[in-house]
Computed example of a mutant assay.
Amino acid sequence: MSVQKITQCSHYELWQAWKERGNVDAKKQLIELYLPIVDFVSNRMAAGLPRSVSKDDLASNGVMGLIDAIEKFDHSRGLQFETYASWRVRGAILDGLRSGDWVPRSVREKAKKIEEAYQHLEQKYLRTVTEEEVSDYLNISGQDFHTMLQDVSVMSLCSLEDPIREEDSEMRISLLVDEKAKNPEFKVNEHYLHQCLVEGIDKLTEKERTVVSLFYYEDLSLSEIAEVMSLSPSRISQLHSKAIMRLRSVLDKHKTMLLES
């Protein structure tokens, strides 16, 4: 992350002033100090969204997430605020996108068809299926399948960040924020979620795994990944979309198991 690290020691007095004495000026200073987190997250998320989505709107929602993080963060536990705040900011931006219904119904329907195709074919053959097999199942040409992937790429940002439960605004990834959490149910869920993701990632093609790794673990943009892999940005976007659709299918099965248990 290109955000300058802000240590808890250097600003501990601000946290004390805000949390222990309710000093509003200290809260304002904390917001200003951590604003680079909003810039980093909103700019990164904007890279995968249509041009019609305003960056200012993303940043505005992100600031609300940052304020929420500052209000809820427990500075006395010794946890890293930047990590906690990043997910709060990201969640607030996603909530804003969802409430705005920025994805057309036709795009959602295409994404659902692709997810169902991968789920059906991989359950049938018990292996990773090819693009040709998926396009044949959907009764479309390979070029039309690539076009569908390009159309649904704008949804890939949200697919791994769905709520733990439909009525809950907390994301699945939030389970990983507090490593000292003692709740056994959370620990069990975290374990099985990790296993499901490992299983899903293992089924991806080599190129799909590379894209996922570079995007989510190395913090590269899609255009930067395109340069690394010597592929066009549109092809990288397609690979990213395919990977997310398949991982989402795995997570949906995990979610169904949780609801039935």
Rank of each mutant, 00 (worst) to 15 (best):
G91F: 00
Y217V: 06
H11D: 09
S234L: 13
E132N: 10
S52Y: 08
L239N: 10
M257L: 12
R108V: 06
V107M: 04
E218I: 04
L247R: 06
E71C: 10
Q150W: 04
I201Y: 15
A17W: 06
Y12D: 06
S169R: 09
H11S: 12
K207P: 02
H75F: 15
K28P: 02
K113H: 06
D101I: 02
L239Y: 13
Q29P: 03
C9P: 11
L14W: 13
M64W: 04
S213M: 12
E206C: 05
A26P: 08
E71Y: 13
V152A: 03
L126R: 15
D202R: 14
K72S: 02
V3L: 09
I201W: 06
N23G: 00
K124M: 03
S230R: 07
E132I: 11
G65M: 03
I140N: 10
A117S: 15
S156C: 14
V211A: 07
D151N: 09
G91N: 10
M229S: 02
E199D: 02
E161N: 09
D202P: 00
M229F: 01
S135Q: 08
R21V: 11
C158A: 12
G96C: 08
K180D: 08
G48L: 07
G100N: 13
K203D: 06
M45F: 15
I70A: 04
V38I: 08
L14R: 10
Q4P: 04
T83Y: 05
S54D: 15
S174K: 04
K253D: 12
L35T: 14
I244W: 00
E32V: 05
A26Y: 14
D144G: 05
T7F: 09
I244L: 01
V38A: 03
S99D: 06
A17P: 03
D68W: 00
L258I: 07
S232V: 07
G65Y: 02
L176M: 10
K113V: 07
K55A: 07
H194N: 12
D219S: 04
S234N: 15
P184T: 11
K110R: 07
R108P: 00
L157Q: 01
G91D: 12
S86V: 03
E170F: 08
S169K: 06
L197E: 05
R21Q: 11
L79V: 01
I173N: 01
L222H: 05
I67G: 00
S2I: 10
N139T: 12
Y118Q: 10
V198N: 08
D151Q: 13
L14P: 09
L259H: 11
S60P: 00
T83A: 12
L231W: 03
S221W: 00
V211Q: 04
V3F: 05
A85E: 01
T210R: 10
K28C: 05
Y84K: 05
T205M: 02
L160E: 02
A26S: 14
Y217F: 07
R98H: 09
S230E: 08
G65N: 05
K207M: 14
S76Q: 14
S42W: 09
W15V: 09
E185D: 13
L35A: 13
D252I: 10
H146N: 14
E133V: 12
H191E: 07
D57I: 11
G22Y: 11
M229W: 03
M257T: 15
Y125T: 09
L94W: 00
A47T: 13
N43P: 01
N61G: 11
K242W: 00
S232K: 15
Q123G: 15
E218S: 12
